[in-house]
Design a protein around this nucleic acid. Sequence first.
DNA 1: CCAACCTCTGAGGGATCTCTGAGCCGACGC
DNA 2: GCGTCGGCTCAGAGATCCCTCAGAGGTTGG
Lengths: 250, 250
Amino acid sequence: MLVSAMNTTRSGRPALTRPDGTPVRVLVVDDDPDLAEVLSGALRYEGWEVRTAGDGAAALTGARELRPDAVVLDVMLPDTDGFAVLRSLHEVKPDVCVLFLTARDTVEDRIAGITAGGDDYVTKPFSLEEVVARLRGLLRRAGMARQAEEGPRITVGDLVMDEEAREVSRAGRIVELSPTEFELLRFLMRNPRRVLSKAQILDRVWSYDFGGQAHVVELYISYLRKKVDAGRQPMIHTVRGAGYVLKPVL
Amino acid sequence: MLVSAMNTTRSGRPALTRPDGTPVRVLVVDDDPDLAEVLSGALRYEGWEVRTAGDGAAALTGARELRPDAVVLDVMLPDTDGFAVLRSLHEVKPDVCVLFLTARDTVEDRIAGITAGGDDYVTKPFSLEEVVARLRGLLRRAGMARQAEEGPRITVGDLVMDEEAREVSRAGRIVELSPTEFELLRFLMRNPRRVLSKAQILDRVWSYDFGGQAHVVELYISYLRKKVDAGRQPMIHTVRGAGYVLKPVL
DNA sequence: CCAACCTCTGAGGGATCTCTGAGCCGACGC
DNA sequence: GCGTCGGCTCAGAGATCCCTCAGAGGTTGG
């Protein structure tokens, strides 16, 4: 019988692993150290091995040493631009996945070139849920998903989410959700039966530069309830003074 | 009043240890020496090895020497801010868990991203039970729990508490509890068959700045009895002149 | 340029929680 | 027996937490 070391995330979920069972390796390249720190924290939380770099030169060194499966790459770097780094990266490791971080006003045609190569991008300011989800998608499509259960769909009770199709259904009936509602529900569904505080939700679902109050979370929970729980047995529960839980109906 | 420091390991319950069986190591960073002392007393009471530091520089030195598994870190430090310390800590020891202490009014300020990495925070004024519980949660998720049976749930007789789902059930039936009731019961359940004085309970379950009387403890014990013991064989017993005990029904 | 949609702010109101005060009861000592 | 003390419970005030509505401002797509 084949026994491999069980690789789990800090959250207790089974981690997405490389074909040989070792953790996925990701290189984070951003010149803002705070942002790099937050990103690498979120990725380590997924059970992945992370290394950071602050500029293009460091990125290449890091890539040679870590030999990452994926790279999170800021387009704006102090020494070079992201596309030059991309070319060098592909020389070092041709099959690496790249997730670009771009400013909102980055030129369109350059982005078109990215997605054509199978890579992906997110625009700043982004939410951590989105970055993690995109990375998971890239890795999965690159054949990195060793999990049978780690498909593109999440199921909690009779609630089903297809991440790729961005489609949610409860008891077979399609539920239409706005982008924020979708991300909030995804976060809840990836952490079922666990109480999530409003701060946790804010940190994870809202952009890192969101300055607003935790009140928005209440508001969006109320939207979700109207759409997901409407008339049915409620799955979204409030835990007063603590946060919210998503629980399948028993 | 504040609980006095105790250096003994709590008897009757196996301490949470590192994978190699040595005690968990925690660094406490706060510029208020009284608070640091109270905290380290509570953590030593858990059987953990504790060291304190008063500012960011001392925190780094301490981290390098102690190589802690977790750090309790005040966001407001005389020399640096929490984010910078977090980054340095992760450089010293990438897998360290951090529990931030923040004032209530700075909550919205810059917590963003902190809980995203799997780290956590509590707002001042906090209760020691809460700090210890959060730390235990962090350590458990980081794979530090060499627990024999130290899972996310505590069991005493037919009474079961799931800390992550914040759910309590007696004989299979869900019991709804308010935040304070929950913390009080958690404290009782973590110390079964042991008489706990009202002063002990106050020091541990209520915030350190609570100025009220021990009468509240009686009141909350009475609430708990109504919900937990309701109609069943009582598990919560009064020891006149000494305190309360939680005992499984024989 | 307009319409539809999305996101967020602010305010109101309702439900729940916490704690105080007071009365009651039983245990214990004299 | 009787008073005292410790503990239990009820009732209610005040605070807090949470939900919802209404609408402003921004974005998107036609």
